[in-house]
Simulated scan of single mutants.
Amino acid sequence: MAVTFQFDLVTPEKLVLSQAEVMLTVPGAEGYFGVLPGHTPLVSLLTAGVLTVGEGKEAVRYAIAGGYAEILPDRTTILADRLQCWDSVNVAAVEAEKRAASDAELASRDEESTNKFWKKRLAFAELCLDVHQQYLHRSS
């Protein structure tokens, strides 16, 4: 059995990562699940959460807004709607986005679809800040 699998992390804008990997922890629609080499084939809807790439102190965490995962025994591809790596969060920009999303969400209470959009933006901003806090605690 292989000790690594090919991992590709993609957003609508670009290929973020393409590397051999040993383990992932993925925020699936039904809850978090792990991916190791030789995993049973699976396609999963992803929800907002933390994508962990690798294991132990070497693991890298991403705030992910949602998307899809295709898991095969020797390859995994994550198609992320939006994501932010924990070590590259621009706190000032995320705080500004959080305030804007919160204001817009309050203003759109009567329009359900618009309100839902802003709630998702607000939740992602908060997730980015949480992931960044994890990074700060890890590096101190």
Rank of each mutant, 00 (worst) to 15 (best):
Y32K: 14
E70A: 01
Y135N: 07
A63M: 08
V10G: 03
Q134G: 10
A107N: 13
E21F: 01
Y62W: 12
V43M: 13
K57C: 03
L72A: 03
K116N: 09
K14R: 15
E95A: 09
A107M: 11
G28Y: 00
L129V: 03
C85S: 13
S139T: 06
L72Q: 03
N90P: 08
V89R: 10
A101E: 01
S102V: 04
D130S: 12
L79H: 11
C85H: 09
P41R: 05
L42W: 13
I71M: 03
V60L: 06
M23F: 08
G66V: 00
Y135C: 09
G38D: 09
G49N: 12
A123N: 02
T76P: 02
T11I: 10
L72P: 00
L24Q: 05
S102N: 11
V26N: 04
A92W: 10
E111K: 14
E126C: 03
S108V: 05
A29N: 11
V3P: 08
E13I: 07
Q133E: 15
A59S: 13
R82F: 03
L136I: 14
T40D: 07
T11D: 10
C85A: 14
W86S: 12
V131Y: 07
A48V: 07
V131G: 06
V26T: 02
W86G: 14
M1D: 11
L79F: 13
F5W: 05
G66D: 00
A125R: 05
R75I: 05
F5C: 04
F7C: 09
W118H: 14
C85D: 13
P12N: 07
E105F: 14
H137L: 08
L72G: 00
L36F: 09
E13H: 11
R61A: 07
P27I: 01
E30H: 15
G67R: 08
V94M: 09
T77S: 08
E21T: 01
E13A: 14
G28F: 00
L129W: 06
L42C: 14
D8T: 12
K119L: 02
S102H: 10
S18N: 09
Q6C: 01
T52W: 08
R138T: 10
H39W: 13
E111G: 12
E111P: 12
A29I: 06
T52A: 12
Y32D: 15
D81W: 02
K14I: 06
E30G: 15
V26H: 01
A65I: 06
V53L: 01
A101G: 10
P12D: 05
L15W: 04
N115E: 07
H132P: 02
L106N: 15
L51I: 12
I78L: 05
P73E: 03
V94Y: 07
S44V: 05
A96W: 02
A100I: 05
D87W: 08
L136S: 12
V131Q: 08
A48S: 15
